[in-house]
Write a protein that binds this DNA or RNA. Structure first.
Length: 304
DNA sequence: GGCGATGTTTCCCC
DNA sequence: AGGGGAAACATCGC
């Protein structure tokens, strides 16, 4: 799925295109798009509603509806929201369509059919009890849907080094990279930006989260914000078939330092980039800049 | 054509 | 509890 910068790009574009439009119809061509709610039910609740705003929460696109609800869209791996004028040529893999009263449409195209749409209470999208100094204690086996347990937004002022340090202490036994991908802690970071941020912060993906030194935590916070902001500035990263709401490409993919660069020289030190698998996800790092954790350092850190 | 990969999330099994 | 692996799908590249 598109990650935070890609979803932010889509949301910003959509804001200009659909705010103020009234929904006339909703049609689904793949029953699992709205699962477990029948598409007809979603259609009935959307008909006649006006879109009052468009935002992003984690990796969800949030289409605000008049009243206190929102239609949220989870793009997963290949989902695209395409705004089209009347008479526009067909798009491929269209799984659902929102028709507006003026004849324009918002098409949800999704090759792999993983994407989902749901009507939710906007209040449920609030940061999951992560405000203030108290770090999150997320129920690891929460049965709540993901949109109700999303963690802190990393580009807000609330995402401080102190917050991150305390968060890493609480979730300290996990390896750092899988922890960054857990949407209940920090919302919006995906595989690519986690890889890029860890390289920038010079932290090995398998380092134990709770054993990062204070200077490393500070670098990690800075690195996350840097790569996410850069991604937004460049309109996201277009690999394979990611496109923005107008069908255009982002430019961030040219700026990847590590992602998908196995064997190429590290831009910082020249050593060959290494590909590993961490938590089932392809992972890239520089073996010189990002030192692997060792028994000895782990033990020394324990004593601190 | 087979095999393994893919920007995500969830579920099941230890 | 939380890590690993597979599954939900379709396509692409070697």
């Amino acid at each position: 799925m598109p990650e935070l910068p890609e979803v932010e790009t889509i949301a910003r574009q959509l804001r200009e295109l659909v705010v103020g439009r009234r929904i006339a119809s909703f049609e689904s061509f793949w029953h699992r798009v709205t699962e477990p709610v029948p598409a007809a039910h979603v259609a009935a609740r959307l008909r006649g509603r006006q879109i009052t705003g468009v935002g992003r929460r984690g990796k969800f696109v949030v289409l605000e509806l008049d009243g206190d609800e929102a239609l949220i869209v989870s793009l997963r791996m290949t989902g695209k929201l395409l705004f089209r004028e009347p008479g526009a040529p067909d798009d491929t893999f269209v799984r659902a369509v929102i028709g507006f009263a003026d004849g324009t449409v918002l098409r949800f195209s999704d090759t792999r059919k993983f994407g989902r749409m749901a009507i939710v209470d906007r209040a449920d999208l609030a940061e999951n009890d992560h405000r203030g100094a108290a770090p999150p204690e997320n129920p690891p086996r929460s049965r709540l849907p993901l949109h109700r347990v999303l963690g802190i937004e990393p580009l807000t002022p609330r995402f401080t080094t102190r917050w991150l340090r305390e968060f890493l202490q609480l979730r300290g036994r996990s390896a750092i990279k899988p922890l960054l991908l857990d949407q209940r802690g920090i919302a919006g970071v995906g595989n690519i930006y986690a890889i890029e941020a860890l390289w920038r912060a010079r932290i090995h993906p398998l380092r134990t989260a709770g054993l990062l030194r204070p200077d490393e935590v500070a670098r990690l916070r800075e690195a996350l914000r840097f790569v996410l902001r850069k991604g937004i500035r460049l309109g996201g990263a277009s690999r394979r078939d990611y496109v923005d709401a107008r069908g255009g490409q982002g430019r961030m993919q040219r700026e990847f330092q590590m992602y998908d660069r196995a064997g190429e020289p590290c831009p910082r030190c020249g050593r060959a980039v290494v590909r590993t698998v961490v938590g089932g996800r392809g992972t890239f790092h520089c073996p010189r800049c990002q030192k692997a954790p060792t028994e000895r350092t782990a033990r020394r850190r324990m004593v601190r």
